[in-house]
């Protein structure tokens, strides 16, 4: 590395600060909004001078939304639970299906394997709306509309390709010789998969799972169309704050803070895995 002068260090710090402010400002502003009433939020010009209140959070947790016109029942906690359940279940299923599939694609180059793998990835390319219309018709007929099962199934469109492609890259990175060594030592292919391939691809699987979780959590359109209020996640649930008597900015902000908190915490916790998994996926995929 070249030596840095003091000035360089300072300039670099300022540049970094600008980037951080640029990216973090919206989140910071939302956090401030969540601590204000609608009146103070809509002041012109906006100001950061206000009396913080927890009323927005209280409303979300108790489920009672008081507006100037009426009192509304909002089941935000149910939405939050739906988000958790749908995301966890979808990612679990996707891992169960995707990891063995990724292993197969990484290790066994059969005729058309590349095509099948790419087809699976291409599910991510299609605009969700295009898929949704026929899908909602099918779901009505099959009785899957407005069920958790149906949603989890559709969420595989989001999770499965992601997991498949990221984890496959990780499996490909393991030298076949390491697996051969275990085979030759007298172990079956399945125990080789369990004892060698799985642990070595662990970081990749964790990254892929995490990423799939975030994508599933943030999904909006599938649940909006395919489920009713009691099955909808927070992303859709926040719509309820657009009421007849106006948009409840304070509560929306509080809802956003509460709903991004788990993913943010997860992402921060597993930052290292995420970056590794993503960059590897980018190279391999």
């Amino acid at each position: 590395m070249e030596h840095q002068s003091k000035l360089e260090t300072v300039l670099r710090g300022i540049a970094l600060l600008l980037v951080v402010v640029f990216f973090m400002f919206p989140i910071f502003w939302i956090f401030l909004m969540s601590l204000q009433t609608n009146e103070t939020i809509l002041r012109v010009p906006p100001s950061i001078n206000f009396e913080p209140t927890l009323s927005n959070y209280r409303a979300l947790i108790t489920g009672k939304l008081e507006t100037s016109a009426a009192s509304l029942e909002i089941n935000f906690l149910q939405n939050l639970w739906n988000s958790v359940f749908l995301s966890v279940a979808s990612v679990s299923l996707a891992l169960l299906l995707g990891v063995p599939a990724a292993y197969a694609f990484a290790r066994h180059k059969f005729k058309g394997s590349e095509d099948i793998a790419f087809t699976l990835l291409s599910f991510r390319f299609a605009p969700p709306l295009l898929v949704l219309l026929p899908l909602s018709l099918y779901f009505q007929k099959m009785g899957l509309a407005d069920t958790y099962l149906g949603l989890i199934w559709v969420y595989q469109l989001i999770c499965l390709p992601l997991i498949l492609w990221i984890v496959r890259g990780y499996f490909e990175d393991i030298s076949p010789d390491i697996e051969y060594a275990y085979r030759v030592a007298g172990h079956s292919w399945f125990s080789t998969f369990r004892k060698i391939a799985l642990p070595l691809a662990g970081p990749g699987i964790a990254a892929a799972g995490l990423l799939a979780f975030i994508f599933a959590w943030n999904n909006f359109i599938f649940a909006l169309v395919l489920a009713s209020a009691d099955k909808q996640p927070v992303t859709v649930g926040a719509l309820a704050f657009i009421t007849a008597s106006g948009i409840q900015y304070g509560q929306i902000a509080a809802a956003i803070v509460m709903s991004i908190a788990p993913t943010l915490a997860l992402a921060l916790y597993a930052q290292k895995y995420l970056v590794e998994g993503l960059s590897l996926g980018a190279v391999k995929g």
């Binding site: 030298s175 010789d177 390491i178 051969y180 060594a181 275990y182 030759v184 030592a185 070595l200």
Partner: peptide, 11 residues
């Protein structure tokens, strides 16, 4: 029994 060029140890 087999030994490998890159050692192929289980890391």
């Amino acid at each position: 029994g087999m030994a490998f060029q890159n050692f192929a140890l289980f890391p």
